[in-house]
Design a protein around this nucleic acid. Sequence first.
RNA 1: GCCGAAGUGGCGGAAUGGCAGACGCGACGGUCUCAAAAACCGUUGGGGGGCGACUCCCGUGUCGGUUCGAAUCCGACCUUCGGCACCA
Length: 815
Amino acid sequence: MSADYEPRDIERKWQERWAADSLYQVTEDSSRPKWYALTMFPYTSGDLHIGHWYALAPSDAHARYMRMKGFNVLHPIGFDAFGLPAENAAISRSIHPHTWTMQNIENMRRQLKSIGAIYDWSREVITCLPEYYRWTQWLFLQFYHAGLAYRAKAAANWCPQCQTVLANEQVTADGTCERCQTPVTKKDLEQWFLRITKYADELLDHSKIDWPERIKLMQKNWIGKSTGAEISFALDVPGIEEKEIRVFTTRADTVYGVTFMVLAPEHPLVERLTTLERREEVSAYVAQSRRLSDIQRLSTEKEKTGVFIGACCINRLNGQPVPIWVADYVLMTYGTGAVMGVPAHDARDFDFAKKFGLPIPVVIAPPSWSGEELSEAYLEEGTMVNSGPFNGLPNSQGKEAIADHLEERGWGGRTITYRLRDWLISRQRYWGAPIPIVYCPKCGIVPVPEERLPVLLPSDAEFRPTGESPLKYHQGFVNTTCPNCGTPAKRETDTMDTFICSSWYFLRYTSPHYQDGPFDPDKMACWLPVDLYTGGAEHATMHLLYARFFAKALRDRGLLSFDEPFLRLYNQGIIIAQRQKMSKSRGNVVNPDAYVEEEGADAVRAYLMFVGPWDQGGDWNDRGLSGVSRWLHRVWHLVLTQPPSPSTATEEKTKELRRITHQTIKRVTHDIERFRFNTMIAALMEFTNDLSRLKEEGSVDFETWQEAIDSLLLLLAPSTPHLAEELWQRRNRPYSIHGQPWPSWDEALAAQEEFTLVIQVNGRLRDRVSAPVSITEAEAKELALGRERIKAHLDGKVVEKVIYISQRLVNVVTR
RNA sequence: GCCGAAGUGGCGGAAUGGCAGACGCGACGGUCUCAAAAACCGUUGGGGGGCGACUCCCGUGUCGGUUCGAAUCCGACCUUCGGCACCA
């Protein structure tokens, strides 16, 4: 038995022992309340960096704590294994994505095991394996049968150089192709969508979940519910079938101020309405705007552009003709793709009118307005003017009156628009779950029957440097027969967005090898919903929104019985290095392996918890780590060296030790409950400091000392599981410490007998004195006023009042 | 531009209406050593006064306010970080 703390040896020893004993294998157990503690699974990038540890170690400590509290804890881990980097590796290094991914998983699994977490490895989920993606495809079919998956033409990112479509992730921030730096344009393609917008209102409702306000707000802004009206403008152009243009507006009250109409360049009416003499200019403008990336087009810095198309529509409310323009500041994908231009009361329309010399009539008068021209758009409340029968109304009332008016006449009416779009899930990529659809010349779109799943990715795909999906050219994959009629048919060659895979992985953990469905309904009912989900805030409007959508859609399909997948969400912050975000390009990515080897996983775990409040992130610092490591060495020696001699014990010190022990149990429990790991570790450090001092004094009895040391180890168990287990064993306590109940504290034993009474004069600290906690208000005031120092400060002054805050302070107020 | 979060010693941070700086790092001094490292012990916000036990003043981004009392609550501003960004 070595005398020194050798983390490397004891960590290896216990990880092997725990694995051999299946200590963390989880089964359903109705005798204990369940606790599903989920942490966002990592992407298989190759290496776990310290940021992963920062996410995983504290959540493991909390899950271990819940386990000791008596919960049946499911705290699983897996790998988000489909995605573009694997394919890029295939192209640049001629390694198959499957090989690359599985090699990475092997390395990451080793790293994850070194954390010493309570992961039940028998529940590991890997999204790129057919066992898993079979059910991803099955779920897609459920969406399809429910009418929630549909195929539509959409403008996809197109690289003219590579001659291929790019996923959004492949377009850089400045709108160029990731591989060849060519500006990316748009190309209309048939794509698959999931109808997430159907659930927009329900997704907006966060009332059933305990999530950070910040994330709920981000989702709310992302969904962007906007209440307004649709207004029909009359079209009377010879030879044109359409008799109206509909616009969406939140400002129906300003409809008398319309001086122009703007259509998005993609609007179908642009081509039909453009007059012969304007055709050339309009076509050039439309073509140019399609060449711009969304980012360039939507930049607020960019000056307004647009072209008059030569036609007019009629504002039905006042019968005025309205010239129709095309401009790229109007988006086809929001509202109706057409906007009524009210320059006096909309900043964008104002800029547009100024640039093209269009009139800017005021229809909502500012409070002290006397007919002058506006120098900028007036967006506030006001009285309606130049608005026919609505003149004189406050605009808020006018909005309602005009909506009524529109509805009565069939010219439009109240409506709601969302910023949220349907989820485009097609990816022209190889390394994803194939969309299980066949195109038959006779039957059209035919879903692959469930019993023929999975549609397997061919392993012999050829990766071309053009970036095109190898599936497209793989004859064995593409050519099939129609499941309906047997006619030769073609397979869909697009794969699914990897966010689909991560939208349901937490369901699969309950029964990772289940053969008859994506999850065993009984196990699902036992574990779901997730009680606590931890991970980064960067997933607010992607993964976290998609997963909620999945849960609701599957609920409506009768597969799930809950509304929300994640009852509580907690976001850890970001760990930085040298005051900068870690990134490969900066070369400051911290790999934990060497630190684990040197100082031990327990020290790395404890340091990451100690570095600061978990939700605020922290700075990785080697010296900080060695401070924590030193502390663990002190703990080691404190626990293993001889206890103080009982012959020199005093009742007072024994009482003090017992009080400190119970106070520490209380503090640590409160802190870990609230994820305040930093103050939890600080409390444990203070406790060890106190124990060292008392041991030095040799002044406490044997039994109290044993209770203190056992408590210390139990409190350490979630944070430094190996060290706690080793010391527990060396004290001949029953294996395993991780099966012990969490210690409880006795309020009476934790209670102080004395406290420091702070005495202030006019709010300034002047004295302090120890006082019994039983002191009454009158006694405290008398004690305070009797102090020599206080008397000196009161000399020559009149005491106006004396404030007493129980167990804290006395404040003497003078005139 | 809009929305959100945060500003405290040399550094990470603690204290969320009541002793500012817990805990840790660093620094300085000491013990041990031939020496160094490690380990351990002590000191450590700034300034002034006293031989001294001590004592006074200033101090939580800036300026104001509320309160007996403000790092903490309110208002304005500055800075940093995050999100959204022509969404009609």
